[in-house]
Design a binder for these strands. Structure first.
Lengths: 77, 77
DNA sequence: TCAGTCCACGGACTATAGTCTGCAAAGAAG
DNA sequence: CTTCTTTGCAGACTATAGTCCGTGGACTGA
């Protein structure tokens, strides 16, 4: 599984934990709804600024999103 | 200071610690020499995949690059 | 002086991040 | 059944990530 796919799964999991719809999260982060959908499905590779925006909207640390991603990613190799 | 500027400073600091030239790091990471230069000067916002590539080349965790960035970034706000 | 290394920077380019609009399908609820 | 919410997805678009070419300046050492 590619990095962006793992990140997408992490993103979706945390969003659902926080009970946001994709549209709500998009609005909070200042991003587009369809782009949240693309990221969650691993079709886009967010920039560092987008990662910070997502983390802010989800009220988690940017590094925790990356840490969760690398942890799952490393499990597979 | 913008997120990408802070990231650039972190990147440069770690690269110099590891005694790499920009060209060496670029080669190790599979990136372009001029692009390393652009990032270090805060002119580019790397994607999550690029962050992973840089971390791999520098032999650090991707999340540690982001953690260092957010720590400095938070200091300013 | 001269060669070699390192880096900033420019221009032109290709690939892709990210937006916007709209539609279809699935599920929940009245 | 209808209605509302949520999401996937397609297409067309703009902005920018990332590459590749080159030049010139600062510095070091022979």
């Amino acid at each position: 599984m590619e990095i962006e796919e793992v990140f997408g799964k992490v993103l979706r999991e945390i969003r659902l934990e926080k009970k946001f719809s994709q549209e709500e999260l998009a609005h909070i982060c200042g991003l587009d709804r369809t782009y949240i959908s693309l990221m969650e499905r691993g079709k886009r590779k967010p920039t560092i600024n987008t990662i910070f925006a997502l983390a802010s909207g989800l009220n988690v640390l940017p590094s925790s999103l990356v840490l969760a991603t690398e942890s799952i990613f490393d499990l597979e190799s």
